Amino acid sequence: MVKSRHKTILQIRIVRLGPQLAAKKVRSKHRLLKVEVWEGDKIHEVMAVVNHATVAIAAYEAAVRERQGRVVTLRHGARVLRSTEPAKPPVPPTVGHLRTLGVTGVRLWCVSCGRSGVLSFEAIRAGDDEPFPTAGKRSICAVCHSRNVQRMPEWP
């Protein structure tokens, strides 16, 4: 009982060592949960290395309170479970990038009447550096004159 309790205490102990030493400090058959403090694109400090998810979440929340304004992550292996880093919005592809992938034009669908057609990038006057969803002039349905037109790349 004492050995088991001592081992558990060793596994949930908060370590403030370098990232390489902290991973070696606690050995287990299972993947470890780590709470890390980042500075730029490098790990500055490993706050906790644990096996139990509840303890890891508590350590993460304590690290967020202690290190306000810093990026703190809770990881399980390579996967980030929680992070204080703000989410980056996805960047849409440009017309030039789609052309290098072999896209020849734009397939347009009218949401109002269901008609569809294909136009080249030159026909909609889209420049290579424009983001795809908003590239070129705004399309209007030739049949019902609706501006509610969806765009998709015309893949070869």
Rank of each mutant, 00 (worst) to 15 (best):
V37W: 01
I14Q: 06
M1L: 06
A123D: 15
V2D: 14
Y60V: 02
E85N: 06
K7R: 11
A62C: 05
L81Y: 07
L21I: 10
S146I: 07
L32N: 07
R67S: 05
T8E: 08
W38F: 13
A142M: 00
G127H: 15
A48V: 05
P92N: 15
P131R: 12
T84M: 02
E45T: 04
A59C: 13
P156H: 06
G40A: 04
L17D: 09
L108A: 03
C141H: 01
I9L: 08
A63K: 08
G136H: 00
V64H: 05
K7P: 00
A126I: 11
W38T: 04
S120C: 09
I14G: 10
P156Y: 05
L101S: 13
L108I: 14
P131K: 07
R5T: 04
I12V: 08
W155D: 00
A135P: 02
Q150C: 04
R151P: 03
V49Y: 03
R65A: 14
V55Y: 06
G96N: 08
F121C: 02
T8D: 10
G136V: 12
R115S: 13
S116R: 09
G40W: 00
W155R: 12
K88C: 04
D128M: 08
V64N: 09
V95S: 00
K137S: 12
L32E: 01
D128N: 14
G69Y: 09
G18N: 02
G77E: 10
C113Y: 01
S116E: 08
D41W: 04
Q68M: 12
P133V: 15
P156I: 07
H52Q: 02
G127F: 02
K3T: 11
C141Y: 01
G69S: 09
D128T: 02
G114W: 08
I57K: 14
S146N: 04
T100M: 12
R151T: 03
R79H: 10
I9G: 05
E130H: 14
A59H: 14
V106R: 05
E122K: 06
K42E: 10
T94F: 12
P89T: 11
R82C: 03
T100Y: 01
I14R: 11
I124T: 10
A135R: 05
D129E: 13
M152C: 09
I124V: 15
P133H: 09
R82K: 14
A23G: 07
P156Q: 03
K34R: 14
L98Q: 01
H6V: 14
S28A: 07
K42S: 02
V50R: 09
P90V: 11
L108E: 15
P93T: 14
Q68D: 10
V72N: 00
A53K: 12
V111L: 15
L10R: 06
V2K: 13
P90I: 12
S120P: 04
G96K: 06
V118M: 03
R125K: 15
V55I: 09
P153L: 10
G136T: 06
L21T: 02
V26P: 01
K3S: 11
D128G: 02
R5H: 01
Q20N: 04
R138T: 15
R13W: 08
P133L: 15
H44P: 00
P93M: 11
P86A: 02
V149M: 07
D128F: 01
V55H: 08
S4T: 12
K25V: 01
P92C: 12
R99N: 01
R13P: 00
Q68T: 04
G105A: 06
R16N: 07
G18C: 06
W155G: 03
K7V: 05
C113V: 13
N51S: 05
V46I: 10
L119N: 01
